Amino acid sequence: MLYVENRKPAAKPEFTADNLFNHDYFGRLEDYLKDAFIGRNEIVELDTFINKSVLFRPVVNDIYCGKNMYLSRWKRVKPYDYQKDLDYMSEGYGELSRRLKDRGIDFIYVGIPEHSYAFADDYPSYLYNKYNEWKEIEDSFFDALHQKDVQCIRMSEKIKNVDSEYTKTDHHFSYVGAKNVYDEIIKRINEVTDYNLDSDVQLIQGPEPFKGSYARKLFFLGDIHDDYFVYAPDFPFERFDNGSKSENKLFFQDNNKYLGNMTYGIYMNGDVATTEIHTNRDHLPNILVYGDSFTNPLETLLVRNADNFCSVDFRYQRDKGLMDFIEAFHPDIVLCIRDNLNYLKRDGNGILN
């Protein structure tokens, strides 16, 4: 694993006639050699240091290095003709919502602004800003969800303090931001069901500086960092990851420190294909949540309000579909968590009906 780049090294291609003539053998071999040579990380880190700290380039490794914040650099592309994808996704969520309602299950779609969308106003004038495209798509998409009678929460309209609810160094929200999303989810559950759940939890600040995905791409160079938060669970539970007994923990500080900095993996120990948590509190609902890594901090909070809790990331869980988990888990509530960059993407955690 190339930790700083958050990807696996390129695999060595097999030398066959088919690969040679039909599958870009030499291009794949070049990618493999680039990743495999000794000292690669040290050279990339030195290059990052020179560009960021000596030449003071504003954009390094596709990260805009602002005075107090990092932002993702976006490359200009042709306008996205999104209507076909929007129709497909909104109809899919409408059908999924109806199917689950027929089973007595409440479905709630939660849309979360990604960091670049939340801080669109902070981009310098010379960098491409996709806010207008994202805003148009989000307006149209949530209008369509409402027309399909899908229970949905549009968090771009519910941010209270963007500086505390998002980090300076990561493309996700902060734990304070996750807490705000959690508050809205619990509020909506109470509105559409007979449950009376609470979201009152005392957050505890961690001692280490937090540096996220943007800082990782910059080899954690520089002083920009964030605070991070956890809480002390006051209920016993058993946790199972990918069908096997796991540590009964929600926060994994020791596993996720890098060069003295806390990283996003602290929450649920990062991305896991499937996690089940049993709390033996049968007066609470069974909750199933699916989505990408934005779910990780939310999972630590939502389990407070669940008898049995299940989270699925279908980027890694490929053997079963959503309905398979519903048949096995018998949820009362299903939550789909998506950030705005993925509203209309069909792969990974999109729809899955």
Score class of each variant (00 low, 15 high):
residue 51 N to D: 15
residue 180 N to H: 11
residue 214 Y to V: 03
residue 323 M to I: 12
residue 159 I to R: 05
residue 213 S to P: 02
residue 135 K to A: 10
residue 347 D to S: 14
residue 111 G to W: 06
residue 28 R to Q: 14
residue 100 L to T: 07
residue 98 R to K: 15
residue 98 R to Q: 12
residue 109 Y to P: 08
residue 96 L to P: 10
residue 164 S to N: 13
residue 262 M to A: 09
residue 290 Y to S: 01
residue 19 N to S: 08
residue 103 R to A: 05
residue 15 F to P: 06
residue 271 D to G: 01
residue 204 I to G: 00
residue 183 D to R: 13
residue 44 V to W: 05
residue 136 E to G: 04
residue 99 R to P: 00
residue 3 Y to G: 00
residue 29 L to R: 13
residue 37 F to I: 12
residue 59 V to A: 02
residue 84 K to T: 14
residue 11 A to M: 14
residue 245 K to H: 10
residue 127 L to S: 07
residue 330 H to M: 07
residue 165 E to A: 06
residue 197 L to V: 06
residue 75 K to I: 10
residue 338 R to I: 09
residue 198 D to V: 10
residue 137 I to H: 06
residue 309 F to A: 01
residue 196 N to P: 00
residue 145 L to G: 03
residue 351 I to Y: 10
residue 22 N to E: 14
residue 297 P to K: 06
residue 158 K to I: 08
residue 322 L to E: 08
residue 46 L to F: 11
residue 225 H to E: 12
residue 5 E to Y: 11
residue 44 V to R: 12
residue 107 F to Y: 13
residue 279 T to K: 11
residue 79 P to M: 02
residue 257 K to Q: 14
residue 218 L to R: 03
residue 37 F to T: 09
residue 270 G to V: 09
residue 3 Y to D: 01
residue 277 I to S: 05
residue 97 S to R: 07
residue 19 N to V: 02
residue 152 C to E: 10
residue 302 L to K: 05
residue 20 L to Y: 15
residue 45 E to F: 06
residue 189 I to N: 01
residue 263 T to Y: 03
residue 162 V to N: 03
residue 79 P to C: 02
residue 222 G to Y: 05
residue 24 D to L: 13
residue 39 G to A: 05
residue 206 G to T: 14
residue 277 I to A: 09
residue 215 A to Q: 01
residue 168 K to H: 10
residue 263 T to Q: 04
residue 283 H to K: 13
residue 174 S to Y: 08
residue 48 T to C: 15
residue 108 I to M: 04
residue 149 D to M: 11
residue 131 Y to M: 10
residue 80 Y to Q: 06
residue 163 D to Q: 12
residue 107 F to E: 03
residue 69 M to E: 06
residue 81 D to W: 03
residue 92 G to T: 10
residue 67 K to V: 14
residue 156 S to H: 12
residue 104 G to N: 04
residue 112 I to W: 07
residue 25 Y to V: 10
residue 162 V to C: 08
residue 264 Y to C: 01
residue 182 Y to R: 06
residue 263 T to F: 01
residue 220 F to R: 00
residue 278 H to F: 13
residue 182 Y to F: 15
residue 323 M to N: 13
residue 10 A to S: 15
residue 321 G to E: 11
residue 211 K to I: 01
residue 334 V to W: 01
residue 308 N to R: 15
residue 149 D to G: 04
residue 313 D to F: 06
